[in-house]
Design a protein around this nucleic acid. Structure first.
Length: 463
DNA sequence: AGCACA
């Protein structure tokens, strides 16, 4: 055999596809979140390994499915823009291994602490109290710590001994948390349970993400109250969201009913809406809107964030990216729709509307664009409704919630816009107006509005 | 700028 030529592989870096990708030339100090943000649009990431190599500037990403890894490699192979992390070009190839193996989690050495992965949910969907309830059935739960990693929402559950942990694992591994303990839009929520190498968790605060049931005097972390989710922090300390094709919308000041049809009309302006689910959360209303791709979702998010569906600051939209990528909407009712199936023919008429020519409506910029939006943005997930302002962490709230009413404060953070030229508004406001005009014609909004609705005044969108 | 973990 000639030297340097193996029989197994002609060339060392001629890769066969793998669901594990090797990423190199990363910034030295790049975080796992940046890697995840880059790769997530292409599929579900189940594991990562960062700070690899002598320079700590390589990483591995493992997708759930081979095709997802292939789609990412193919995309950047033919893209005019190289893959980048914080402006630095990174190089992506198939790894020469088929899976990431961490030595961290042994997984099968029995211990008193369980590592639980809760599949198909994001952290806001399953409260620590629900987790506590489920796992208390097998014995006294000492401590719980929850966190979000690339693999998803995870929890460490500490029992007294390995026997109790084993009974809980045997009973619950692969099972689902009962539906009645979950938000309505969650249909599957399977538990994957392994043993953790930990024996005693160090819980610093009682919070929405960690509990120590052996120490009732442990202080409550004011910045980790129920309902607020710590945002991912970017390298500059600024909140950084992981993009998704699914948007989480919360609707503030909902004086008028906002139905799925209304949402479908509004969000269809930016592309095909695949699925919508609406549900109650903390007394407010939220909706998940699924687009086919991240790009469409981000355009819709940018265009709609902070806008009101109706005049007077009513039904103000706040949008974040959901961690969901594919909603399991199995119903066609007032809580959920799947527009990708045509069995009922419901609303298949509202495809992406044609470009507006002249609308006849006007866009009225509102001087108070972000009176509450800043607070939402600062806390990541939009989960805090009105009326719970006393539990809010003051350090996160730049303004007083006492002013969060129709009495808009005169000072604003945003630059006041005196007028929107129609030309520059063609992507967002004009499209919105077109959408609202259509919905008026089709009467979609008429049924949704109470008698007191401003019928003489067509709905319009303000910033 | 080119592959960890045992």
């Amino acid at each position: 055999m000639a030297p340097g030529q193996g029989t197994q592989q002609q060339f060392r870096y001629t890769q066969t596809p793998s669901k594990v990708l090797h990423v190199r030339n990363l910034p030295w100090d790049s975080a796992e979140e940046e890697l995840v943000a880059l790769c997530r649009p292409f599929g579900k990431i189940v594991n990562t390994m960062c700070n690899v190599g002598a320079n700590k500037n390589q990483a591995f990403v493992e997708f759930a499915d081979l095709n997802q890894a292939i789609s990412m490699v193919s995309y950047y192979a033919s893209s005019s823009e190289p893959a980048q992390v914080r402006g630095k070009t990174v190089y992506i190839q198939y790894s020469n291994r088929q899976e990431i193996t961490n030595n961290k989690s042994t997984g099968d050495v029995p211990g008193n602490v369980l590592l639980v992965t809760i599949e198909g949910v994001e952290s806001g969907d399953v409260s620590i109290d629900v987790i506590h309830l489920v796992f208390s059935a097998f014995g006294f739960v000492h401590k719980i710590a929850t966190f979000e990693k690339a693999a998803g929402f995870q929890a460490l559950i500490q029992y007294t001994d390995a026997e109790t942990a084993a009974s809980a694992r045997n009973a619950l591994d692969g099972r689902s948390i009962p539906r009645y303990l979950l938000p309505e839009h969650i249909t599957t929520c399977h538990l994957r349970i392994t043993y953790s190498a930990h024996t005693d968790l160090s819980i610093k605060f009682q919070s929405h993400r960690s509990r120590d049931y052996t120490n009732p005097f442990l202080p409550v972390n004011p910045s980790a109250i129920e309902g607020s989710v710590q945002p991912l922090l970017g390298p500059d300390g600024v909140k950084k969201e992981t993009e998704s094709n699914v948007l989480l919308a919360s609707i503030e000041n909902m004086q008028y009913a906002v139905t799925i049809d209304v949402l479908h009309t509004v969000f269809s302006t930016f592309g095909t809406v695949q699925k919508i689910a609406i549900f109650e959360k903390n007394g407010g209303m939220q909706a998940l809107i699924q687009y086919p791709d991240v790009t469409t979702a981000s355009i819709a998010k940018e265009a709609l964030e902070g806008h009101c569906i109706y005049d007077g600051g009513y039904c103000k939209l706040h949008l974040t990216y959901s961690r969901h990528t594919d909603l399991s909407v199995k119903v066609h009712n007032d809580r959920g729709r799947d527009y990708t199936v045509q069995d009922t023919g419901v609303l298949m008429t509202s495809q992406a509307p044609s470009l507006p020519t002249t609308t006849g409506w006007q866009v009225y910029p509102q001087s108070t664009s972000t009176y509450i939006g800043n607070d939402f943005t600062a806390t990541g997930q939009v989960t805090v409704p009105h009326g719970q302002v006393t539990t809010w962490n003051p350090s996160l709230s730049s303004g007083s919630f006492a002013s969060a009413s129709n009495m808009f404060p005169s000072q604003t953070f945003a630059t006041p816009v005196s007028h929107y030229p129609v030309s520059t508004a063609s992507t967002a406001p004009a499209g919105l107006l077109q959408a609202s005009q259509e919905s008026s014609q089709y009467g979609l909004l008429a049924n949704a509005q109470p008698a007191a609705a401003p019928t003489t005044q067509p709905p319009y969108y303000t910033t």
